[in-house]
Design a protein around this nucleic acid. Structure first.
Lengths: 318, 318
DNA sequence: TATCATTTGTGCCTGATTTTCAAAGATCGG
DNA sequence: CCGATCTTTGAAAATCAGGCACAAATGATA
């Protein structure tokens, strides 16, 4: 049933003009070659070589078959070479799925460096906050929060801690005061998500190690963190937002961090890709790029004493 | 190392959209399919399918490889089909080698019936009296005398006895008398070949069963039997010639048979072709045609009481 | 919601296929 | 005429592929 090998041996015999020479060239024994040719002839029901005990000579049928075999083998080798080449070079199309806000805020601003590094690669970026089936959708790489990772056929590599910070605008703090303990939050207007109730349970680790969960409430709710961010900026209330999202505002003072001495729960962004023996170079290239960008210290945690302090307190590089 | 089977299974998996479905379609177990795909991926060093435990989906690389595989498999099947078709139909070129005189006298006059029977076949007829290497020369079929058959890789099928007859022209007999015993030949002018000395040892079987060899001599020698034939016709002397060559002249009386009661050595024409498991249809067709033409009774032995008598005495059909 | 059937993947084992080894038959070159 | 080389074959050995059983996971279904 081994068509291709038979054909390759046959072609080699034709080109070497001898079973023995072909056997030497292919590091086989002459008898193995002889038997392969015999099998091929038996399967085809036709004689390919006329033989004496000393010489072989192509039949007409054999000559025709040789032409075809030579072409077929070349195509097989080309096909396999193309696969290996596609595998070993970064080209083609890479399909990436990422959570919308994080991609807009942190990935896309840096994506040009990646594309310039690999001019033969094109990128398809799908922004979504829904969990999706990578295999079904033909997604090569996904970037999402830890809790969304369920698929066991995927490899998850940690990109960056997603530190949550409770913030408010200086204006709000001036008007309502600054909470000193988590319990104080009950007396503040806490902006919340109405579609992820879990997001509204703010967990703090007390200085003595105990954990405390505050179920916050307020008069403004939205369905995305981005909406809370905007509301917070204009002084509507307190919000618990990702560090990367509020870092610039903390720097320029348009938001201030509250309860800095209480460690909050830390999740992380992960990069996901299909596990398996054979990881394509383009996937590896993108994963490497992301890791390079966001580890050991993610960009929003850099350059600012305030940020560094917060970062070192709440997490360490992957 | 079984490229083609791997590729066929891969293609089937793509088309069925599932390992299990492909396995059912190809009458295999799913695990066998899974392993083949795994082997293929390992050899290529690339992932062809993304899988969950429940679904598979082509990768980009896999899609490219599939296109190529589908084409390659079609070509493999076409190549094998063409071989079988060439094998099973009588077409192409048939290369025949034959002894010159017999071919001109007995084969070529009948060859048109053969060519008309197989309109897709073309014939290359090489007339030669030298023994040649069928394999080396790419000859499909050879027709020659028994004694020229030495190659053990050939099958020899007997076509017709080659009865030898001593003849002379009536004119010569009238002038020199008719020999009554083999010994009488020593007193006659016997035409001989100068290149095949063996041909000049005329062997007779006496009525009592003893064998007698007469080494003939005369004043005319030539290098072909055809030349002796022409000389004999014009009354130069006695010649020992093949029955097929002199039969028309015996019928029309321009030659007469001498020593008819002495059985002479009988050789035979054989049709030779490469032995082996797989005999091509065109070779078989030609061999069948020759056998049909020359057996059980060769044409020159037919229709004439004289001929039949001589034939029945000196040989029997193969 | 819980059970069931289906799908992919893996480990082990058996059986078949293939290779190797040894030798024969045959031919070519010196 | 002898030695070297080439094809082929038969038997033994080794490799390889497939089957089975099972696990993990998922979608369908009651």
């Amino acid at each position: 049933m081994d068509r291709a090998t038979e054909m390759m041996i046959f072609v080699r015999c034709v080109e070497e003009g001898s079973f023995s020479a072909a056997a030497r060239a292919m590091d086989m024994t002459p008898s193995a070659v002889s038997k392969q040719i015999r099998r091929l002839e038996d399967r085809l029901g036709a004689r390919l070589f006329n033989r004496t005990t000393r010489r072989i000579n192509l039949t007409d049928v054999g000559r025709d078959f040789y032409e075809r075999c030579a072409r077929i083998i070349a195509e097989i080798e080309e096909a396999e070479e193309v696969v290996s080449s596609l595998q070993d070079t970064v080209r083609g199309t890479l399909r990436v799925a990422a959570t919308a806000a994080f991609a807009r805020g942190e990935i896309l601003p840096r994506i040009n460096a990646f594309l310039e590094r690999y001019p033969d690669l094109s990128l398809e970026m799908q922004l979504t906050d829904r969990m999706l089936d990578l295999v079904e959708q033909g997604i090569d790489v996904a970037v999402m929060l830890q809790e969304q990772v369920t698929d066991p056929s995927l490899v998850a590599r940690k990109l960056a801690n997603n530190r949550r910070i409770v913030v408010a605008s200086p204006d709000y703090v001036a008007r309502h005061g600054e909470p000193k303990t988590p319990e104080d939050l009950y007396r503040h207007n806490c902006l919340s998500l109405y579609n992820v109730s879990r997001f509204n349970d703010w967990e703090f680790e007390m200085p003595d190690g105990r954990r405390q969960v505050i179920h916050v409430q307020g008069n403004f709710r939205a369905n995305t963190a981005g909406a809370l961010y905007e509301a917070c900026l204009v002084g509507v209330g307190l919000a618990r937002l990702s560090a990367w999202m509020v870092a610039p505002r903390l720097r320029d003072g348009s938001l201030v961090e509250l309860l800095p001495d209480y460690v909050q729960e830390v999740t992380a962004y992960y990069v996901l890709f299909p596990q398996g023996r054979h990881m394509s170079r383009k996937v590896r290239a993108f994963v490497d790029f992301l890791v390079e960008q966001f580890t050991p210290v993610p960009p929003w945690e850099q350059d600012e004493s305030l940020m560094l302090r917060g970062y070192q307190r709440s997490g360490e590089p992957a």
